[in-house]
Design a protein around this nucleic acid. Structure first.
Lengths: 156, 156
DNA sequence: CTTGAGCTGTGTGTAACACACAGAGTTATA
DNA sequence: TATAACTCTGTGTGTTACACACAGCTCAAG
């Protein structure tokens, strides 16, 4: 099988197959006459595994680590069980950030509906954005006296 | 103000300031004697705006477009209102994907708790992963007769 | 003047591919 | 067999938003 054939069979782009080959996840043999990559059944199993793992959110690096065990004939199950727990935690975290961002955005859209369109000044570029963020930083760090000194440090 | 001073004042890394300068979002003047970037008040307002916009999920490219209006003295409010709507849609979409991934992961963890640790074979690298994904692809595309022909196309 | 700390700009790396492109291979037609 | 037309290949580069490395410059202390 050549690159494009494998790609079509698994519903991915030829570039994806080339990419996984380039980074060493796939090791097709090379046709001696034209140098083309030649994939066999094992390579396809490997590629399917990669796609399944990616589908579960595993990174290419994760997959590399997994292969480093399975290529030695060892079971990767324990490793995979651990990796997925980490993945879940990461996903939860990203999920929470999505939630925060989403509500921030909806709130902004709503708030902005009652605000005028202003023209930029030397101190304000777009009041919609600048005022929005003032709110959720308020008790974070801008409560320290800011921008009062150092301004005259402009020595030269 | 030099790079590090501005960075510290706004709580970001000097590299971030340099980056925004490099891509043209900031245009500090350069000290004629040593070539160092020199930031004034306007540059700081600009930088704060960038940070606020990034905080709302706007991309650097978005910000570039915004500046292309405000730098001409035009109001960017209408533009910003449109951009944020798009942002919200994108966020909703990513949010949904997060939800799907999260449940996929939890389900996998649960299912796997009752499955043995297997050793890789020629057809299966890690049954945990390979079997998990079989499930949610089942009615997608693998229901077409797959992998029955072409295998013998291996001419040479 | 020298030393050393600190700062600077620039080049490169990151994740996971997508795209571009020249050159080689393959096929169809003459 | 020649040639045109098309397909395929490998490789180089672009993507996002910075982080890191590093040589060289600046500046204060001695």
């Amino acid at each position: 099988m050549k690159v494009t054939q494998l790609a079509n069979k698994l519903g991915v782009s030829a570039d994806t197959v080339r990419f996984y080959t380039r980074i060493g996840l796939l090791n097709p043999s090379k046709s001696p006459n034209n140098g083309y990559k030649t994939f066999n059944h094992k390579d396809m199993v490997r590629m399917q595994f990669i796609l399944s793992a990616r589908n579960l959110g595993f990174s290419v690096e994760d997959i590399k680590v997994i292969f480093s065990k399975t290529d030695l004939g060892d079971s990767a199950c324990q490793l995979v069980r651990e990796l997925i727990k980490v993945k879940l935690l990461e996903t939860e975290q990203q999920f929470n950030e999505m939630v925060k961002l989403r509500s921030k955005l909806s709130k902004a859209i709503q708030d902005w509906s009652q605000m005028p369109d202003n023209i930029p000044t030397g101190n304000m570029i777009c009041h919609l954005i600048e005022n929005t963020n003032q709110e959720d930083i308020v008790s974070e760090e801008l409560d320290v006296p800011h921008c009062v000194n150092e301004t005259s440090t402009e020595v030269k």
